[in-house]
């Protein structure tokens, strides 16, 4: 009995410590060095802290379900992309800067629903998501990548900074892991590890030893760099967002209380036969879950089971109704 009590007490103490670290972290009063020492002391501490984080995040998903439309974080990217969709002209004007790329580029593309892995000349890896195209040129003094369309995951080995172009945008990447997606008139670079930096395309070339005239924007791990017709911006990527962003690399698609309309649009990227929402009342229903990206059967049956939405096959695709 006393052994049991001893164990129980220990468990509670660790749960309390983990919760305290999390509360301090959230309040910005955490002593990081002491935290790392605590977490590294025993696996139990690391587990307890991750559990506290899980509890914390679970409450957030409840908050999202309550007021998902009021919370901006998850939808910032799409909102931003929609907002600048009308600014294509501004983008076109600066597009000339890179038209000299038309020599010695290798390229690869993926079809709808296809996912393709590539090894780049320096040993870096790339993965093309559905309906994507990338071109690249590597030499001793150049690592250039051009996303023509779609979405690419990159795992860059050490070396000179890689320049990644998309539309008329350009970012510079260190070694590390990145997810790069073109959406509307924007290129969205999510940093999983390493650094991504950007200067406006029209910025003068920065010469070594001279200060840049326009401040360079830098994104670190767990941040996203959005390059649009307006000035490049960095935003924190929430853990949910990060996980959902790279889910496709496992052949999955993750919705975390997204409006049905958004979820369907995402799904349609992977499908030759598209899903259409026939009933406008359905568009705002929040949906969540993890599904196989190329096969909507589970997604559709989840909609039916969970929300009473019917999917009727039509023209090779599906129509959703009440």
């Amino acid at each position: 009995m006393s052994i049991f009590n001893e164990k129980q007490r220990r468990k509670r103490r660790i749960a309390r410590e983990a919760a305290t670290w999390l509360a301090r972290h959230d309040s910005g009063t955490i002593d990081e060095e002491r935290f790392h020492a605590w977490r590294g002391a025993t696996p139990e501490h690391a587990i307890a802290f991750a559990r506290a984080l899980a509890v914390w995040r679970e409450a957030q998903s409840k908050a999202d379900a309550d007021t998902y439309h009021l919370l901006q974080s998850r939808f910032t990217r799409r909102r931003a992309a929609a907002a600048i969709g009308g600014m294509g002209m501004a983008g076109l004007l600066t597009a000339g800067a890179f038209t000299s790329r038309a020599y010695a580029w290798d390229s690869s593309h993926s079809g709808v629903g296809e996912c393709k892995r590539l090894i780049l000349p320096d040993g870096s890896r790339a993965m093309l998501n559905t309906d994507s195209e990338m071109q690249w040129r590597f030499s001793d003094d150049e690592r250039s990548l051009w996303i023509v369309r779609g979405e690419v995951g990159l795992e860059l080995v050490r070396g000179i900074p890689a320049r990644i172009h998309g539309l008329d945008r350009m970012a510079s990447l260190s070694h590390g892991r990145f997810n790069v997606r073109l959406e509307g008139a924007a290129m969205d670079v999510t940093v999983l590890s390493g650094k991504a930096s950007a200067a406006p395309v029209s910025a003068p070339v920065v010469m070594p030893g001279q200060p840049a005239l326009i401040p360079i924007v830098i994104a670190s791990p767990s941040e996203g760099l959005l390059l649009s017709a307006v000035a490049p911006s960095v935003r924190k990527a929430s853990p949910q967002h990060l996980a959902a962003t790279i889910a496709w690399q496992q052949g999955e698609i993750v919705f975390d209380n997204e409006p049905l309309q958004t979820a369907v649009r995402e799904y349609n990227r992977y499908l030759a036969g598209k899903i259409v929402i026939a009933d406008p009342d359905l568009t705002g229903i929040p949906v969540g879950g993890r599904f196989t990206s190329t096969d909507p059967a589970d997604f559709l049956s989840a909609l039916e089971l969970g929300l009473g939405v019917r999917a009727t096959p039509s023209n090779g695709g599906y129509v959703l109704t009440r």
Partner: peptide, 20 residues
Amino acid sequence: MPVSIIRPIDIWFAEQIFPH
């Protein structure tokens, strides 16, 4: 909440493991 001390594996645990 800043994410500095939170590692990808913590997020993965929170998302994939603890719910079960």
